[in-house]
Amino acid sequence: MIARNPISGVGIGLRAEHYEYVKREKPTTPWFEVLIDNYLGHGGQIQQHLRDFSELYPLTFHGVGMSLGSCDPLNKNYLGLLKKAINTYQPALISDHLCWTGFQNEYVHDLLPMPYTEEAAQHVADRIIQAQDYLNTQILIENVSSYMQYRTSEMSEAEFVAYVCELADCHLLLDINNIYVSAFNHQFDAKEYLALMPENRIKEMHLAGYEEQGDYLLDTHGQTIHAPVWELYHEAIKRFGARPTLIEWDNDIPEFQVLQQEANKAEQILDRAQTHAA
């Protein structure tokens, strides 16, 4: 498997609303994450933006298109386009989600959780292995936020995530906001969840804002990061040490400087952890 160039510090999720600003101002952001599905198989200006940013910054690729938990066959066309983009742009990290997004050629474009069973773990791990073999690189899988639980689950979500990483020998993108949202929605202890994560497999963390919806939290990526998520992030960095961390924002996207302020906050937490470790 191909080793990829390392990144560090706090990156920002690149969105079309900020293309012009980033190209013009060239902020000191150490790296950007691109939602790679938005670029695959498209041409014209869309491809040109990707070319431009790849020349300015280290990039990571984040997708939803592998649908790693689905019972449909892996989409070879999608994987082929992804492989071509990886070979062209050499991203520092490639990630997708521990979920499924559709079945029998119907797609929900949402991150549907798996039942936490032995059968599901073996199924998704086998597909991660196939994807890694095809792409010739290890990938990161991200824990998703969820709003439903299956009766058939045989283990906790945290146990499932750790088990799948082990079975597939893949890396983990630990989304701190998703842990908090799911912990609130399903009434489990987020810190106990952290304690079960495989430290050596965590290669990146995500931070984002949620939205309160009465008796549950919705992972909208449309607000600043909430205090309990910062607290959990601090706990995660204390436990695992500094990891490349991403600020995500997808709805009601504000000016780039707002994301930079969030990145600065995360950077301070990373710096404190590194000072403490030294």
């Binding site: 689905s70 019972c71 499924w100 559709g102 079945f103 029998q104 119907e106 929900v108 549907l112 039942p115 069973t117 059968e119 599901a120 199924h123 299956y150 058939t152």
Partner: peptide
């Protein structure tokens, strides 16, 4: 069992 669950969810 997993395919049936996914089918039922989509339906």
């Amino acid at each position: 069992m997993l395919p049936e669950l996914q089918k039922q969810f989509m339906d």
